Computed example of a mutant assay.
Amino acid sequence: ILVVLGDRYEIFSAVSAAMIANIPIVHLHGGETTEGAFDESIRHSITKMSHLHFTATDEYRDRVIQLGEHPNRVFNVGGLGIDNIKKLELLTKEEFEESINFKLNKKNILITFHPVTLENATAQEQFQTLLDVVNELEETNIIFTKANSDTDGRIINSMIDEYVSQYKDKSVVFTSLGQLRYLSALQYVDAVVGNSSSGLIEAPSFNIGTINVGDRQKGRIMADSVISCSGDRVSVNKGFEKLYSEKFQTKLKQVENPYGGGGASKKIKTLLKEISLLNILKKQFYDLNKEIK
């Protein structure tokens, strides 16, 4: 079998090849929506080529079934990203600072901003607005992780490099922090800022805020810790004002992650051992309005 996660075009190529080669495909994190990115179409296409589905919430499970997949082949196991939080021994503050060769400040934010592939505003416009806003924050250090390989990703990365070269005293950039350093960072920052899915899936488990900019993640289930704003300056400013408000900071302490509390990988392993792959390649479209025959 081929097990794949998510909605990237690199995965789409592998899944297409596996389907033609009659290799059973297991899809993780299907049924989600991201209206502002072309990942939306890729994700649902992978769902239709797959034979078993493990989703992150019941709502996403329902959506996979709505796409015609039989309920007996669709399982809600929770978000896989939560497993890493539970299993990894995260770095202490001192260890983390040493690992990135950068001292944290009174306030700290982690920014990950990917191209907005289906929005009218360009990635450059939205990201410049974000940079202008965060540059005015006082006593705040910024950790950047670079954009993915989507269209305009290079433009964003160039803007990050230029900003960090100008403000070395309060900012640092990494192509990728890796799992351990990234999740460790979430212990010590006030918020994940930008449009990465990690701000929706992993960040709530740390009871920190997320400022979700633009429509890239529009349609995904969001915890109460997520502040969504459009890409304009006024909206982003209001997002930071809300983040540091006493009311919101109090609210963060009670936030529950809608993607569960971990254990997804173990559930998937158990189910894959139990499910027979005999004749699994043949699928009948499951019509919501009729009983399957």
Rank of each mutant, 00 (worst) to 15 (best):
R220V: 04
G219C: 09
D190K: 00
V134M: 05
R154M: 11
G199F: 00
L131W: 02
M222Y: 00
S196W: 01
F174D: 01
I208R: 05
F127N: 06
G199E: 04
S165P: 06
N207M: 05
S198M: 13
L130F: 03
G239S: 09
F144H: 02
N157F: 00
N157K: 01
L137Y: 04
V236K: 02
Y182N: 14
S230P: 10
T122H: 07
I143F: 07
T151S: 13
L177I: 02
R220M: 07
T140W: 07
K242Q: 13
F174I: 05
R233Q: 15
I155L: 11
L183G: 13
G194F: 02
I208K: 10
N212K: 03
E138L: 13
I208V: 13
G178A: 10
Y163E: 06
D132V: 04
F206Q: 12
K146R: 11
D224T: 08
V193P: 06
F127Y: 07
A123N: 09
K168V: 13
V234P: 00
T145Y: 03
A185G: 14
K146E: 10
K218H: 10
L131M: 09
Y188H: 06
E138D: 14
N237M: 15
D132A: 09
R181W: 04
S197C: 05
L130I: 11
P204L: 01
T129E: 01
E202R: 10
N157S: 08
D224P: 06
N141S: 11
S235M: 13
S149R: 09
K168W: 07
T122R: 05
T145M: 04
Y182G: 09
Y188K: 04
V226S: 03
Q166S: 14
A223Y: 00
S225N: 13
V134E: 01
F206C: 11
D190P: 03
K242M: 12
Y182I: 07
E202S: 08
A203D: 12
T151M: 11
A123C: 12
V213N: 09
I221K: 14
G153V: 06
P204G: 05
I227C: 12
S171D: 01
R216D: 01
N157Y: 00
S176L: 03
G178W: 08
D190Y: 02
A191S: 13
V234L: 08
E139N: 15
S176G: 10
D232S: 06
Q166H: 14
A223T: 00
L200H: 13
L137H: 06
V173T: 15
G209S: 14
N157M: 03
E136Q: 12
E125F: 15
G178R: 07
T122L: 08
K238P: 00
